[in-house]
Amino acid sequence: MTGVLLFAYGTLQDPAIQIAHFGRPLTGDPDRLDGFTRSTLTDGDAVYPVLIPGGPAPTPVEGVVFEITPADLAAADAYEGDLYRRIRVRLASEIEAWVYVAA
C-alpha cells in the first residue's frame, strides 16, 4: 500500500457512507487495532462508535484498512467533525494508518 491509509472500525465501513462522502465504495483489507477501548458517543438521537486510547478496558478492535487519497482523507475529516480527532496508529499487521478516536 502506498497511498494514505485509514483504519475504519465503524460507519466508514458502510458502502452507503463511502459513496456519499467519497463518491465511490472503498475496498480494503481486514486488520486489527490493539490498546484501545471501544465505546459509543451520542450526538442528538444518533449513537456512534468511538475509540478511547488505552481507556478502562482495552480490547482488540476489528476493522478495515483502506487506501485512500488525500482528498478522501479531507472528506473523512469533514464527515467525522468535532466529535473525533485523527491520530496515527500501528495496526496488528504492522501497517501505520490514520484512525479517528474520541476528541
Rank of each mutant, 00 (worst) to 15 (best):
G44R: 08
V65I: 12
V101L: 10
L33M: 07
P15M: 03
R86Y: 06
F7L: 02
P58I: 12
L5S: 07
L41M: 04
P70S: 08
A8W: 07
V4I: 12
T42N: 05
R32C: 15
G81E: 04
D45C: 12
R38T: 11
V99K: 11
P56E: 12
P56Q: 08
Y9H: 00
P56F: 08
R88F: 01
V101D: 04
T69M: 02
G44E: 08
G10C: 04
I52A: 12
V89Y: 15
T40H: 07
P30K: 03
L5M: 11
D29W: 13
V101F: 07
F7Q: 02
V101C: 04
A46V: 06
L33R: 12
L91F: 03
A75T: 00
P53K: 15
Q18C: 04
L83C: 08
E96V: 04
V61S: 05
R88H: 10
I87W: 01
V47A: 13
G54R: 14
G28Q: 00
G10W: 05
W98Y: 10
L6H: 12
V65P: 09
D82Q: 03
F22Y: 10
T27R: 12
A16N: 06
V50K: 05
L6Y: 15
R90W: 00
E67T: 07
R90N: 01
D45E: 09
Y84W: 12
L73A: 04
L91W: 03
Y79M: 06
G54L: 14
A78Q: 04
P49G: 06
D43R: 09
V61G: 07
E96Q: 12
D82T: 11
